[in-house]
Nucleic acid binder design. Sequence first.
DNA 1: CCCGCCGCCAACCGTTCGGTTGACGCGCTG
DNA 2: CAGCGCGTCAACCGAACGGTTGGCGGCGGG
Lengths: 213, 213
Amino acid sequence: MSGRRLTILIADDHPVYRQGLERAIGERPDLELVGSTADGREALERIHELEPDIAVVDVRMPGLDGLKIVGAVQRDGLRTKVMLLTGYEDSTAAYKALAEGAAGYVSKASDHTELCESIVAAGRGETVIAPQFAAGIATEIQLRETSERPALTGREGEVLRLLAEGRTAARIGEELHLSEATVKTHLHNLYDKLGVSDRAAAVATAMRWGLLE
Amino acid sequence: MSGRRLTILIADDHPVYRQGLERAIGERPDLELVGSTADGREALERIHELEPDIAVVDVRMPGLDGLKIVGAVQRDGLRTKVMLLTGYEDSTAAYKALAEGAAGYVSKASDHTELCESIVAAGRGETVIAPQFAAGIATEIQLRETSERPALTGREGEVLRLLAEGRTAARIGEELHLSEATVKTHLHNLYDKLGVSDRAAAVATAMRWGLLE
DNA sequence: CCCGCCGCCAACCGTTCGGTTGACGCGCTG
DNA sequence: CAGCGCGTCAACCGAACGGTTGGCGGCGGG
């Protein structure tokens, strides 16, 4: 496996950049270019046909954008790893791409060497993040995980946790050594704080607020 | 603001490393060491007293670990930025730290220059992630966002969405132009696929599976 | 010192849920 | 064309829910 050359498919709608990429890969003895396209939909078809080791795909492309390609490849269970190339910094997009299972997210500003190194790293199974996105991704994480949360009291938190596990009020009472009535009170207060009026919605918003794991 | 020296507090229970840090900071004309401690709880107290620009804190410490300090500083609304230092690679911890609002997560293996650069970067408001954690954090994101999801049918997805908004079966029926009975069927199938037996738990696991935003 | 928040409990009522079983038509795939 | 998954619907029951109103004790801050 380590002796074989990594097969690479390129997808980028910018001809000059694409050719530059082709050349860069051509110069590497450990990489083998097996295809090159300018259209997203075509890229996905090629991935299905050729199942290259790595598909290097521009995020912005006609037909089908890079993120959707990642999603499709993942859903179809293909072994091809998709590495995204981007021309501009968008950490939200980077976060989503990684969440979808992209093998990497690197900048078009990288030079040949860097790019190829990223590709072989991806080939080894690593997930590559260009340093310039790292800080932005951190911001993204913070956005997702720390929305302003209404403070819950200790009991409310416990009740909420058990609620999310599907316990009835009576069972929660047992677990917490409380009467069912008390549990209902907590539930009620919980609904107030979360701005909902039933268990399902309570759990949903609690999770969005980051109140529940 | 740019002309002022950044005030720094150090917290690390390893004396040799702490002294090394003190020296490194002492050598920088743009950084001013205002405190240094080996205990977590004490670190938090000092942060309250001194409100340094940056607190450089080891993640593992007696009294109170670095993550908890980040949380406390955040909760108390202090202006101090907490940068975490770690001796070993733990991406889950890194993810949590960033989620809690850490200003950075850097390795103890960094040399003086790197460390100080990270500190001033944090001082500028940037969030610093050591490159060696970047890939791990990507994995973490993928773990959180893309656990294996049982495929839901189109209808099931819609029902689930409305379920999470607190609609009753009857209301969901109206919204989707279905009879209540049909909705109940979908609900039932949903419970099967999610391995639960009530709405609250369904929403909880659906969100964990990434089936719901 | 008293108010407010937290935690605890009660009882009642109509509404909704969850479980179960069975049925029919549709479209896709082998 | 047979089978399967999907979507649609029905009816029944006991269990649980959500709303409401009220009361009691403790504790901490204004």
